[in-house]
């Protein structure tokens, strides 16, 4: 309504030589100004919750440990030179990329299986498959921790039935990395599934029928119809998931607490350990700021593709 009256007001020709107070009124009547004013409360919240902490973190990261002196980029160069931090970078990338690929693949398969189910059964299965995603990860990760626990491990107990030896799930660097990726995949795959399912449902059946008549096999339909039609959803979901997975904290914190020997630390958990537990807040801020350029590069690359396809009319 406010919009409508703004348009109507905009059509009234502005009389020349109005007093100065009129200028302000005219500006208020303009559509973009009004839109900006109405969005202002939200912008204020975003500024308060995102932009302020971001710049505060930048400020913090340039102070010394006791926050008394400006040290420039010393914290960053110190971190880069440290072997543990190089490991954290490697692990974060490994964790995010592997987990996102696994989630994307599993979500893709699940979405197809669900899509192929008759409508009646679909609701029930969809609900059940969404469960991992709706349980608070802190709670479900605790359950996983029990499953992996050295003395009570249900997995090891099952392996023992087949005569396989116990696996040090959380005690060995390789297995611990596998475990955190597994739990993150378990938690995040349903999100991909639901996004892909929505995308699948939006592909008109007639495209598949046209493709069938054009001579496409099932796999060719997937390759030439489904995938191109889903490309934007896949890109955006992957980007979103990359950001969230990169910044993951709770799963690692609960399952391994970064161990053994820092071999499962991510930016988030490492920043917490350095900044809060060891009391070097500027260094912790510096650790978490390292995520920013990495994510920015991902975001730019993916969004550029999405933009281009949108322009082409997809």
């Amino acid at each position: 309504m406010a919009d409508g009256s703004a348009i109507a007001a905009g059509r009234v020709p502005a009389t020349a030589g109005q007093p100065r107070t009129g200028t302000l009124k005219r500006m208020a009547r303009r559509r973009s100004t009004l839109a900006f004013l109405m969005a202002l409360p939200l912008l204020a919240v975003i500024a308060g919750l995102v932009i302020y902490p971001f710049f505060y973190a930048i400020e913090l990261s340039m102070l010394n440990k006791r926050m008394t002196r400006f040290v420039g980029i010393d914290n960053f160069t110190f971190l880069l030179g440290r072997e543990t931090f190089q490991l954290v970078i490697f692990q974060s990338v490994l964790f995010a990329v592997t987990a996102v690929i696994a989630k994307a693949l599993i979500g893709f398969v699940l979405a197809h299986v669900l899509h192929a189910l008759p409508a009646k059964g679909q609701r029930k299965w969809r609900g059940m498959l969404l469960v991992p995603w709706v349980i608070p990860p802190a709670v479900s990760t605790l359950a996983w921790w029990w499953l992996f626990d050295p003395s009570y491990s249900a997995f090891n107990w099952m392996l023992a039935v087949f005569g396989a030896g116990p696996v040090p799930w959380l005690g060995d660097a390789g297995w611990a990395r596998f475990a955190v990726i597994l739990v993150n995949t378990w938690y995040g795959a349903p999100f991909f599934m639901i996004m892909y399912l929505a995308a699948l449902k939006s592909v008109p059946d007639q495209l598949y029928e046209a493709a069938a008549i054009d001579g496409a096999t099932g796999i060719q339909k997937l390759r030439y119809v489904t995938l191109p039609m889903m490309r934007n959803i896949i890109s955006i979901t992957v980007l979103f998931s990359l950001i969230v997975t990169f910044a993951n904290f709770d799963i690692v914190r609960i399952l391994t607490n970064g161990g053994p020997q820092d071999r499962t630390h991510l930016f988030g958990t490492y920043a917490f350990q350095v900044g809060i537990q060891s009391g070097d807040i500027p260094l912790g801020a510096a650790v978490s700021l390292f995520m920013f350029p990495l994510l920015a590069v991902f975001a730019v690359l993916i969004l550029r593709g999405v933009n281009q396809r949108t322009k082409e009319g997809l």
Partner: peptide
């Protein structure tokens, strides 16, 4: 015999063109 081996072509009411091609 599946549609792809029937050697027929079909024109649909809403055209069913592949939007990405």
């Amino acid at each position: 015999i599946p549609p792809r081996d029937r050697d027929i072509a079909m024109v649909f009411q809403n055209y069913a063109l592949y939007p990405h091609m």
